[in-house]
Every structure is written in C-alpha cells, then in structure tokens.
Design a protein around this nucleic acid. Structure first.
Lengths: 346, 346
DNA sequence: GTGAAAGCGCTAACAA
DNA sequence: TTGTTAGCGCTTTCAC
C-alpha cells in the first residue's frame, strides 16, 4: 500500500478505548458489551451502549477481523451487472447470509478471467470467509490462491464434475437439449441456434441443441454465433442474417432471453408471424419473457434457489459442519421449460 | 464479532515475516520491496519478489489498512442489480478507479433506506476511502455517520441542491418536462404518465411531465402510479388499465424503459398502432430501446459519464485536491432525447 | 539502502 | 462479571 502524499488526516475516529476511558472500564468490557452482550451485566451493557451512541462510535472491522481471523464477509463474483440472471442469484444469497450475520460483497468480472483473478486476490487479501463464483472456468492462479487460503467456495450455475470446492447449479447441456427437443416435438424441422458471447454455459446449451437435432436426424447447420456481448438489438440483427441465409427456418433457439426478445422484434419488423411461421425460445426465463407478445418460450433456471442453496452450504461449512459440505460436492437443481406463446405444442 | 464455535483453523497464511525470515532481512524491507520498490536495491527487490512468489505470499490488507489508515477502497451503493442504469454507472467508475489503484466495491440496497444505512455502516467500518451513492434521500444516521467519518462522498444521478458532500447527475425534472414537451410538439393532446416504484427521481420526472402538460393547457389526469417494482409485464398491465380508463389517450410517457417496453407489447397485443394511434416513450435510453420495433423514444441519461466524472472527483479529493472538489459541489451532466420510432415529429 | 521500535483497533485466552 | 496480557500483520517514523 504505497503512501498517498498530500492527504490531509481524517478526523480521528472514536475507538473502544475512548468509550472505556470515559466509563472507567477496560476495552475488553466495552468490546464484550457490544459484541457478546450476554457476557456482561445488564447495567454495564446499557452504559456502554449509551456512551457508544453518544460518542458516535463506529467499530473498526479491519481491526476486528485482524484480531479474530474472521471477517464475516462473503464475496459474490458476477460476470455481468446488467444481466438479471445474476441479480436473482444475488437475491437468493443475500437474505440467509444477512440473517446469519454475514455481509455479502459483490464483485464484477465482466466475463474476464483476468478480472476474476484480480478480484479473488483482492477479496482473499481482505480475508473473506467465503467466495461464490459463477461458472467453472478459472485461471490456474485462482485455483492455487483458493487452495492456499482455505476459503469456502461455491461455484454456481453450471454442471461441474470436479469443483474447486463445492458447486450448485444445473445441467446446461440437458437444458439446451430439452428445449431443442420441445421444438422438434412441436413439429419444427429447421431449427436454428443463435448465440452471443460464448461462455462455457452457452457452449453447453449449444451442445445440447446439437445433440437433440442430431438425434432427430435434422440439420445442424442453422447455427450463428458471435463473440459480441449479447443484447436485444444484436438478437434482431443476428436473426435477420439467419433468415436471409436460411429462409426456411421454422424455429430459432436463442442462447438467452435478450437475444430472443430482439429476434421477436425482428420478426415483427418483417411481419413474420410468431409462432405460426417461426417458433422462438430463449434461455433463463427472465421476467421479461412473460411480458412480450407473444410471451417467449424459455428454459427457466432456478437462479434464486441456487443462491439460497449456496448460502446454506456456505453457512454450514463456516459453522464447522464439514460432514454435509464435503469438498467435491455437486448439487443439480434442475430446470423447467416455459412454452409461452412463441412455442406452442404441436 | 461473536465467536464462531467449532470452526477449524484455516491453514496459516504466509506473512511478511515468513519471507523476511527466509531471506534474513526484516519485515520492513520486505514490505518496501513489495510496495515501494524504489526504496530498495534492485537485487533485494528481486529476491523478495521471487521468494514471495515461491511461498505464495498474499498480503493481508486488513492489517495494511489498519496500520496505514487508508484502504484504497471505494464503495458504490446501487438500488438495483438488475437495472442496467446502474451497471453503466458502474462501468464509468470502474476503469479510472482501478487505474489509480482503487478497488471498487458494490453494495445493493434494493431501494431501501434501511439497507442503505446498514451498508454504509459496514463500508465505513471497513474504512472505505470513498462512497458513491445513488440519489439524495438518506436517513439521518447516514448523514451523521458520513460527516463523522470524513469519507469522500459523491451522490449520483439526480439534481441535488445541498449535497452531503459532492453530487453529479442531471436534472430529472427538466428531463421529464422535455420529453412531455416533445410529445406535445408532435401534436399529442392526451398525454399519460405511467410510473412504478416512485423514488425521488421518478417523482421529479412526473413533476416535469405535469409542468409541461399544465403549461400547454392539457389535462393532468392521465396518471397511473404504483409502488410495485417496475417490470416489462407491469408496463403492459398498467397500460391496459390506462387504456380501459382513458381510451382517448394518444401518448404515454413511462417513467422507465422497462415499463415502456411492456406498454409497447400491450399495444401489439391489442393491435393498437404505435406511433400512429399511441406514441410511447421511456426513460434512460437503455440499449433495449434501440432493439424494439418500433424503436422506443426515451430520455438518454449520461450514466457512464456520470460514473467517470464521479471517479475523477473522488480521485482528486483523495489525492488532496480540495480546491477543485469543494463540499457542496454539484455538476449537471445533462441529457438528450431519443425519438426512436415511437414518437415521430409532428 | 536497511533496521529497530512502536502502534493501528480490536479480540482471545486466561486469570481474578 | 471484569481485567490482564499478548498479539493479529502490517506500516510508520526515525535512526543508522
């Protein structure tokens, strides 16, 4: 931590010692009155609390964690702030962790492994007790740092055979396959797949689509991908390209809901009827899919439940329960299909 | 920080002292080699670095901040993780802060003042050097804690006459008024306003709409609000109610883009032509508004620029430049109108 | 260029 | 129920 020159000193903050001095007791007593109230007489508790309030005392948690070796901090690393998928994961984590006295930190990786590494380093150096990661692709250094730190880790969202520590999610391949099969069952024969920003999860969904299409003896050529970040507009542009190239398409499975929404708008622009002429589906089942017209088919993923289960695992581990939180634990929370109006049954 | 029972000890981490011992020097030298390399001989620098790598040393920043009184941490508190508005604010902040060696933390308030208070308390107790808040409505305790901490603060997004410290944003009232005026100029006479979750910014937009409508001698009665969180689906439902109640509406200004998108879908469901029969507009100018069909009119807010300017102010203040970062500073970064296809000129 | 001493604010362990 | 002692891992100041 290099020095900051010219920095004027902050106002000196009130410490435990100030309260102790004022009350004529020792710091430990004050600390206990505040943090382990049951270990102190009711009278003392009150005196300390009032004095703390009066003086505007604010504990210094750096000092606290340093001394105790525990931070009561859990960090969540999400690839994208704007993707609602991760906000629901967050929601599932938040409440149970807060209830147990843990503070949830959020870090933003922007889908970058380097940024993930930097963030993990930062969080570990701040002594987080637990780490929640999205996905299963990490740099080697991340693996090392985590192993060395002994920090509890849950990898979220995708199927993971050999987790760093624990993992909770769903089988993205099976989900991709299921949606493609639903399209086939509903009578579609020319089924496209549209993907942006190919992370591992998208690759797995794509592989699932491929498996279903192949098994049904249908063509796998209707595939369009781009490394660009996905967006509604992009969905429209890609569908436009697809339809120009393969005008006979009768269904398009988009790797996420934003693309699917954009594809839907593109159909409206072209006057192409959904689902009569083209069936559409997205992935994740975001709120939005139920607001479009027609409502969009999608694979509904249990993001919130994943968050809740993750929180439970972390809390169990952090309270010393190693039996139910073994290293290598993998939990599959499944998924469900939502057909909306854009993919009616045959 | 109450004790956690049954918690098995973590593997002891490598410290400065370990490196020092191995190299036969003192901790200070190691610390300097790592953090102020110019203060140490080139040879020593290399030996220390190599040894650190070998041992897998990871600095303990709690100890570092405690000793130095500075954390190089800046916290951003956002009301909603899923609202893309805030993700772009974050993007604007991130790069300049990282470049200057600061780590940006994200906290999630869920639009709750209590949660904001809790988070601010947490961050201050972790010794953050700076705080970025959204909005200008805070609990009294927040005001106190911030004043006492001497932490640099920027309030973002909305116009603010008497900031806690500094503020950067735009005049939401003027923006609301401008969009309503654009509707009027384009010949609309029955202009509705649709709002969900009324925070201060939404109230200001609403007031702007009211002012414009009143000034034009038009009716202010076409107003529908709900405290529910906004969503695409909700936009459709509210528009449905509005049109049932006031079938003569010829324009609807939604307080954000999600609602506007939902309203657009509802028009499609009803076979109501946009913009011929009904003009539609949202607020924020999210990417999505350019992907719908027709593209949605919206007030484009300079979220990213707000983030960048906020970062610059914080960095200036933290490097001791008080002249250009006076308390009470307010910067208005303006806005622009996007007409899309949903609000053509007359 | 390197070291010695002191202390940041708090908590753990044990003692009284 | 309260106090004593010691120390978490690092940085700061000042000396060499």
């Amino acid at each position: 931590m290099p020095p900051l020159h010219h920095t004027p000193p902050r106002p000196r903050r009130v410490t435990l010692a100030d309260i102790a001095a004022r009350l004529g007791v020792t710091k430990v007593t004050v600390s206990r009155a505040l943090n382990q109230p049951e270990k102190v007489s009711a009278a003392m508790r009150e005196r300390v609390r009032e004095c703390a309030r009066e003086l505007g005392y604010m504990p210094n948690r750096q000092a606290g964690s340093l001394a105790s070796g525990r931070s009561r901090l859990i960090a969540l690393l999400i690839p994208s702030l704007s993707n609602a998928v991760f906000s629901e994961l967050h929601r599932g984590l938040e409440a149970p962790l807060a209830a147990a006295g843990y503070q949830l930190l959020i870090g933003h990786t922007g889908y970058s492994m380097e940024e993930e590494e930097r963030l993990i380093e930062t969080w570990l150096s701040f002594g987080v007790d637990g780490l929640v990661l999205c996905g299963s692709r990490h740099s080697e250094r991340v693996t090392e740092m985590i192993a060395r730190s002994g920090c509890a880790v849950v990898e979220c969202m995708e199927k993971r055979e050999a987790p760093l520590d624990m993992a909770v999610g769903l089988d993205q391949h099976a989900a991709g396959r299921a949606m493609a099969e639903a399209m086939i069952e509903s009578g579609r024969r020319h089924i496209g797949f549209l993907a942006a920003r190919m992370d591992r999860r998208v690759e797995q969904r794509l592989a699932g689509w491929r498996a279903a299409v192949e098994a049904a003896g249908l063509s796998q050529e209707y595939l369009m991908t781009t490394p660009a970040p996905s967006s509604v507009k992009l969905g429209g542009e890609l569908l436009d390209e697809m339809l120009t190239r393969w005008p006979n398409l009768d269904a398009v499975f988009c790797c996420n809901d934003d693309l699917a929404a954009g594809a839907l708008f593109e159909c409206q622009r072209r006057g192409l009827e959904v689902p009569a002429r083209l069936a559409l589906a997205g992935f994740n089942g975001l709120e939005m899919t139920r607001g479009t017209w027609p409502a969009l088919a999608s694979v509904v993923t249990p993001r919130r439940e994943i968050g809740e289960r993750t929180a439970a695992l972390l809390l169990a581990r952090l309270s010393g329960d190693h039996a139910s939180t073994p290293r290598g634990l993998w939990e599959d929370l499944g998924f469900s299909l939502q057909r909306g109006g854009s993919l009616p049954r045959a």
